[in-house]
């Protein structure tokens, strides 16, 4: 496996080099949280963070995206597409769980007959540089779900912190092309790989939660009417935090804004936790209360999607656990289901 190595104090120079040819998005500290923002200088990027509050999906699938604008006059309707970004981009320093989530999003946005051009264009033009997790959080549980703190899925390059240096593993053509532009990177040696392997094993061992995924899916099949849901959902306030911060939640709504003569069509994030999500024109709502909606969320991630596509669609990043206003912990729900 090919890899390069660089000293920790060369990181800023590395990012500076990137900014010359690419538009770079990196974690930046804003007040007390980290977010992915466009940077122009290496020193703006901050890798000493646990995880960004918002997942990388906001770079490719923003909360608000204008699809097209329209104008209508007596000669008819005129539609104008929004030009897609043309420049090469780099998404720098995201965690393996988030990169893995991008693989799910890729599949969703390119499935079937319709390919989502605005998502895919941005995605193709972006090189992903991940950052391995040396110290997973207590809320992380990626290992049970097919991921790992040093996971390589969904990335073009992976930065691994091996104390005084960063090992840069090259995982794709796009990644290889990027490092070619930075000639002062040295080749990695066996000792570096050994060190990285050791740190990776230590990191994996710190993740305590183990979900027996095979047993889980079978249990879910009989759980639709279980009294468990009546107990779990009571404290849920029905906001959108868990879904908006989830790296694999992709539901959206399409709205028209403007006047009859001029306006635009926009796509915005939507969440199954809002009552309006399933409200039908007749007034009937098949998911009338938080109970049905919470059940839907858990079932979708851990039952319906795996049934249809073979994989659990939660990556174990733990954002919903940390950010839920009422401490509704999906890990507890899973444990409760495993114990029935």
């Amino acid at each position: 496996m090919k890899a390069k190595i660089m000293d920790k104090n060369e990181l800023q120079d590395f990012v500076d080099e990137l900014t010359k040819d690419y538009k770079v998005f990196a974690p930046v500290k804003m007040n007390r949280i980290f977010r992915l923002k466009e940077i122009s200088k290496g020193k703006e990027a901050c890798l000493g963070y646990q995880n960004t509050r918002q997942p990388p999906k906001e770079i490719f699938f923003p909360q608000t995206e204008i699809l097209f604008t329209y104008k209508m006059d007596k000669e008819g309707v005129e539609l104008e597409d929004i030009p897609l970004p043309n420049e090469k981009r780099v998404l720098f320093g995201i965690r393996p769980c988030d990169a893995r989530a991008l693989v799910f999003l890729d599949r969703f946005f390119s499935s079937g007959d319709y390919k989502d051009i605005s998502y895919l264009e941005k995605r193709e033009k972006t090189t992903i540089i991940g950052l391995a997790c040396n110290s997973p959080l207590s809320t992380c549980f990626c290992t049970s779900l097919g991921g790992s703190p040093f996971g390589k899925e969904g990335m073009d390059l992976l930065l691994e912190d091996i104390n005084e240096k960063y090992l840069i593993e090259i995982l794709s053509e796009q990644g290889a092309k990027l490092v070619e532009h930075i000639p002062w990177l040295k080749d990695a040696e066996n000792a570096d790989f050994e060190r990285a392997k050791k740190i990776s094993e230590e990191a994996e061992s710190t993740i305590k939660l183990k979900i027996a995924v095979e047993g889980l899916r079978k249990k879910f099949d009989s759980m639709f009417d279980a009294p468990l849901w009546d107990q779990i959902y009571q404290k849920c306030i029905g906001c959108g935090v868990c879904t908006y911060l989830c790296p694999t939640c992709w539901c959206f709504d399409i709205l028209d804004e403007g006047t009859p003569t001029c306006g635009r069509r926009v796509r915005i994030w939507d969440t199954c936790q809002f009552p309006l999500f399933t409200l039908e024109a007749s007034g009937l709502n098949p998911r009338p209360s938080g109970k049905e909606r919470m059940r839907q969320r858990v079932m979708h991630k851990f039952n319906y999607f795996p049934k249809d596509f073979g994989e659990l669609v939660c990556v174990g990043c733990g954002r919903c656990v940390q950010a839920c206003p009422v401490n509704l912990d999906i890990r507890e729900i899973i444990k409760a289901i495993m114990n029935t």
């Binding site: 918002q54 306030i237 029905g238 906001c239 959108g240 935090v241 908006y244 915005i268 994030w269």
Partner: peptide, 11 residues
């Protein structure tokens, strides 16, 4: 920075 999650309104 608001992402219109409505946590403020719902809580």
């Amino acid at each position: 920075n608001c992402i219109r999650c409505y946590a403020c309104r719902n809580v």
